[in-house]
Design a protein around this nucleic acid. Sequence first.
DNA 1: AACGCCTTCAACCGCAATTCG
DNA 2: CCGAATTGCGGTTGAAGGCGT
Length: 311
Amino acid sequence: MPTIRKRVCNPINEEEIELRRGPWTLEEDTLLIHYIASHGEGHWNMLAKYAGLKRTGKSCRLRWLNYLKPDIKRGNLTPQEQLLILELHSKWGNRWSKIAQHLPGRTDNEIKNYWRTRVQKQARQLNIESNSKTFLDAVRYFWMPRLIQKMEQTSSSSSSSPLINTHNSSSAPSPLPNSNKIASSSLPSSCPLPSKLTNTANHSNGYLSSITNPPCVFPSDSIIPHLPQLPQYPTSPPDHEFGKTAYNTNSIQNNSRFAISSSYDMEGGLNLVENNSGTEAFDISQFDTQMAASDWVLDNMADTLWNMEEI
DNA sequence: AACGCCTTCAACCGCAATTCG
DNA sequence: CCGAATTGCGGTTGAAGGCGT
């Protein structure tokens, strides 16, 4: 039940109204949807008043943009989307709205929540700062490959029984299927962890046991067919450099290997290198150097990393 | 069954940027 | 140019549900 906490001076006609707060009711949602359907978005304060909503304009805007808008995607983030978030965050930091622009149907709020509840949780478990270079390395060398593996896995099984459901178009809150219930033991071993990890980890869930050799190199024929499955990735705006490179189908197909560069800088995020065809691909050449710098976390990571399976 | 803790995410808040008169 | 209104953004909060004991 929404609370009524404030009395504010209405900017339209100076009268004071009770403003509702808290969860939106079905009736409020309906009012908002119908009003926008016939009058369009914008002028949120006026909209709130004329739609008969006892809400602030800000609240109406937020409700519409984050929940009611027809193209909002409900459900868990796909591995592709998670990978993209990790990548874009490494490049832009907490620029949630900017990141959200590259995930159609996803809101900045949703991405922000994902980062805080899933990603930062992992950082805490690793006992490292989520914005530290060490954690970025962990993301790059272990998490991203795992997500790519999931992309492969879901892609290969999607024809029969999709593991990921991200297109629940229902606008009503509902229990969502857990997309993370992927059998660890069935995962391919195309992206092994550094052998150093295997010395400290011996989990029986099958995850670490399936990945025992460094570095993460993706055979082109395993990853290529699946990366283009980011079709919802929008056409790149002028300032968007990542989208036209890392997930460029042709660029990947023109490379015999697909790997993640260890070279990081705050401006550029993941570094991409040009191949001889003029397109770009991840570069694995600096992998060893970076790994050495992160030795300590590798020792600690093995015990916690498998938890990423839950993400 | 009941309780408490934990996680998730919708919603709110404050502030900055932008628009408008 | 200025001030007010509006919009957009990122950080934070708290209700609800899940889960373990």
